[in-house]
């Protein structure tokens, strides 16, 4: 029996401290994650935190949950496999813009259309920190951050625009130095039924000398503060198009950068629900990870019945 406990953010702190540059935006994401897990009172052995490669992908090492630190760009498919084999797990992906939007961009797209019930947190600083400051896929064109020899000749990806197009059913943006607000967004993302995407502006103090704390704080504002009637939730199927257009209007803003929940639609069936109705009515009760596969070394599947239509 698991004891009923009320956990605090400190319960999710790993024994070894984070190894990021002092002042790094990622500290804010980390703290927000501790807070969110505590608020949801999640059992740390039932959370799987999955990451790829990069400064932000080191985050799971600083968290007292089960974690998988995989390879560059592939956090989402590793997380997906874990979730599909055991849908009762709380699966959260963290990663940077290089990991999730460049080398792993394809997986992000395809998670969206599947709507698997898991959360992706993008720690966006527009540079490759761990390899010393190359341009990230969210770095706007023409900017010359300090480590690149000339201004960025490539255009940038708008992660939320991509996520919306891909089919994510929860889309939000936070700012790492606003821990309280980011906590709230992560809590909502984890609670959301379906694929949730949270972009967190998380400035790199070492290599991004342009998109700094000051740069962001001049631009960011909160959706619900600017418009108290802001309601990103799809309450009825008929509202889908309107809500997507409203979200889009906000997502494409460039001069000012809105924070908050842009879109939330729980009316779309999750992959798990679809799989259960199409393939296996017992899928969530008896997913692959929870199935016994043998009794005394003998198969649990009836081979002759399985192959009956092929027997002469």
């Amino acid at each position: 029996m698991q004891q009923l406990v009320k956990r605090t953010p400190a319960d999710y702190r790993w024994v070894r401290p984070p190894e990021w540059c002092p002042g790094c935006g990622h500290f804010g994401v980390l703290q927000s994650l501790y807070n969110a897990f505590a608020e949801l009172n999640l059992d740390p052995s039932k959370i799987v935190l999955v990451s790829g490669i990069g400064c932000s992908s080191r985050l799971p090492h600083f968290v007292r949950t089960t974690s998988v630190h995989a390879i560059h760009g592939r956090a989402i498919p590793y997380a997906l496999g874990i979730k599909l084999a055991n849908p009762s797990l709380e699966v959260v992906v963290v990663g940077g813009d290089g990991d999730l939007m460049a080398i792993g961009g394809n997986h992000l797209l395809h998670l969206g259309r599947r709507n698997v019930d898991m959360t992706v947190i993008l720690m966006d600083n527009s540079v490759y920190g761990l390899t010393r400051g190359q341009a990230g896929p969210t770095l706007p064109p023409g900017l010359k951050v300090k480590a690149i020899p000339k201004a960025n000749p490539q255009g940038e990806i708008n992660p939320l625009l991509l996520a919306l197009t891909a089919g994510f059913t929860f889309i939000a943006r936070g700012y790492s130095y606003d821990i309280k607000y980011t906590t709230k967004l992560i809590v909502e993302a984890i609670r959301h039924k379906g694929s949730a995407f949270v972009q967190v502006y998380s400035p790199c103090v070492t290599y991004n000398n342009i998109m700094t704390r000051e740069w962001y704080e001049k631009r960011i504002y909160k959706l619900e503060e600017a418009d108290p009637s802001w309601d990103p939730v799809v309450h009825d199927e008929k509202e889908v198009d309107t809500k997507i257009r409203k979200a889009l209007d906000k997502i494409v803003e460039r001069d000012r950068l809105p924070l908050g929940i842009f879109y939330k639609n729980e009316l779309v069936p999750t992959f798990e629900e679809r799989y259960e109705s199409i393939y296996d009515p017992n899928y969530r009760a008896l997913p692959p990870a929870l199935q016994p596969i043998e009794v005394d070394g003998k198969p649990v599947v009836d081979f002759e019945k399985l192959i009956a239509d092929k027997i002469l």
Binding site: V68, A70, G73, R74, I76, P77, Y78, A79, L80, G81, I82, K83, L84, A85, N86, L89, N106, H107, L109, H110, Y275, Y279, D280, P281, N282, Y283, L286, P287, P288, A289, Q291, V300, V301
Partner: peptide
């Protein structure tokens, strides 16, 4: 009983998703 049979977006994902299944 069922299982998961999953068409991935590419083979990078196919092996990663399978490994995720094994981890679980």
């Amino acid at each position: 009983i069922g299982s998961v049979a999953f068409q991935a977006e590419d083979e990078l994902a196919a092996i990663a998703i399978a490994m995720g299944g094994a981890i679980a």
